[in-house]
Design a protein around this nucleic acid. Structure first.
Lengths: 210, 210
DNA sequence: ACAAAACCTGACCAAAGTGTCAACTTACTA
DNA sequence: TAGTAAGTTGACACTTTGGTCAGGTTTTGT
C-alpha cells in the first residue's frame, strides 16, 4: 500500500510521472478533457492503467498537473516588454519569442486553448491572477512608452490581446492557418514570416513616424 | 417506422430540428464533441432523447449539421474586402462586421474553434475548400491594392490570419480577454474598443502615409 | 539478510453513455 | 372519417470508461 513518502532520490517515480504528463499533454490537447480516456494515456505512456492511478488519483489531477506545468513555460516568452527597452525592439523580441515557444510547444498551446474555450473549468484562481498580474506589468510599460511619446496612443490591453491572439493562432488553429497559407503543414519559415508580418504591421502602426 | 419523406409543409419537423440544433450549438460549444451527451441536448431542447434520435441518427450527424449551419453565417461578415473599396474603409468594415458577428454568435464561434483545435475531425473537405476560396479572393484584392500602391507591401495571407485571430479571440477566449481587460465580462463597448484598436493598429501599419 | 516501503498489475465494478425498439399518439389527406 | 404517415416515448440492450483492489514483485535502508 502506498503511503506518504518523502524520498531522497526518486528515480522511478520521476520518470513515470514525466511519461504520464508527456502522454497526457499529447492526448488531452488532441481530444480535450472529456474526450481523453485514461486508458489511452496509459497506453501512450507505456504503463498499465492501474499504474497511472498509482501516481494520480484521478483524471482531473493529471489534467491540472499539466496545466500547472505549462503555465510555467509561458513566462519566459513574455519577459521582453521592459521599460528600458526601445518599443520596436521589445515588440519584435516578444513576438518572435512567443511564436517560437508556441511552435515548439504546439500541444501545450492547444491544451490551454481547449481549456479556455470550454470556460476555464480547471484553471485555478491563482493561475488566472498570475496571468492578470503579468498583463498589468506589460500594460504599465506600454503606458509609460505612450507617456514618453515613444509610441502612439493606443489601448495597451487590446494591443496585447491582438499580439496574443495573432501568435497563438498558428499553433491552436494550425489546420486553418495552413489552409490560409496554402500549405499542407506549417514549417519554421512560415512562423518566421508570421513574426515578420505581425511585427511590421503592429510597429508601423505603433511608432510615431510611421 | 420512419421512411423517406419529401414533405410539402413540415412544421413539426422544422421546429424540432431547429430546437435540437440550437441546444446542440450551446452544449457542443461549452463541452466539445466528446464532452457532450445526447441526453443533455435532449433535455435542453425539451425533447426526450429517443425523439432526438428520431430526427438524427447519431451524435455525429447532429454535430456536422451544426458545423454546416454555422459556416453559412460566416460569409456575410467577409464580403467587405472588394477591390473597388478604399483599403482603409474596407478593413474597418471587415473588422467591425467580423467582431459583430462573433459577439452575436459566441457559441458558434467557440464550437468552430473547438472543432479546429481538435484537428478539424468533422470539417468536410468541401467546407475547407470554401474557406480557402474565400481567402484566395481576399488575398487577390489585397495584392491588387499593393500593386496600385494603396497599401504597403505585406504578406496578405499572414495579414488575414492576424485579422481573423484578433477578431475571433474575444469570443473564443472570453475568459482570458476579460481578464486582460480587467473586466468580469465583455460588453458591447469592449467589442467596439477592440474594433477601434485593431483597425487603428493595422491601418497605420498598412497605409503608405502612416 | 530481512523488513518495510515503494512499485506494479490483472481483474473487477458501478456509473454513464450511445443507440434501439415496439407500441402508442397525433397529424394529415382523400 | 378512415387510413396512413409522421411523430412520440419509456424501457432496454450493449459498450465504454473512471476508478478500485487484493495480492504480487522490486527496491531500499540497516
Amino acid at each position: 500500500m502506498p503511503r506518504e513518502h518523502k524520498d531522497p532520490d526518486e528515480k522511478i517515480r520521476e520518470r513515470n510521472i514525466r511519461l504520464i504528463i508527456k502522454a497526457g499533454i499529447e492526448i488531452f490537447s488532441r481530444k480535450g478533457y472529456d474526450g481523453t480516456r485514461i486508458a489511452e494515456i496509459a497506453e501512450a505512456s507505456g504503463l498499465p492503467k492501474a499504474n497511472v492511478y498509482y501516481y494520480f488519483s484521478s483524471k482531473e489531477q493529471i489534467y491540472t498537473a499539466i496545466i500547472e506545468h505549462l503555465l510555467e513555460g509561458w513566462d519566459n516568452a513574455l519577459k521582453y516588454i521592459t521599460a528600458d527597452r526601445e518599443p520596436a525592439e521589445a515588440f519584435r523580441l516578444y513576438i518572435r519569442a512567443k511564436l517560437d515557444y508556441t511552435r515548439k510547444n504546439v500541444a501545450e498551446s492547444r491544451l490551454f486553448a481547449s481549456e479556455i474555450i470550454q470556460g476555464a473549468r480547471f484553471l485555478k484562481k491563482k493561475d488566472r491572477q498570475h496571468v492578470r498580474d503579468v498583463t498589468d506589468r506589460h500594460v504599465a510599460v506600454v503606458e509609460a512608452w505612450i507617456a514618453e511619446g515613444k509610441i502612439l496612443p493606443v489601448d495597451p490591453r487590446h494591443l496585447f490581446i491582438m499580439l496574443w491572439a495573432s501568435t497563438q493562432f498558428y499553433a491552436d488553429f494550425e489546420p486553418i492557418a495552413a489552409d490560409g497559407l496554402k500549405k499542407p503543414r506549417l514549417k519554421v519559415e512560415d512562423y518566421e514570416m508570421a513574426a515578420k508580418t505581425i511585427a511590421e504591421t503592429v510597429l508601423r502602426g505603433v511608432l510615431p513616424q510611421g
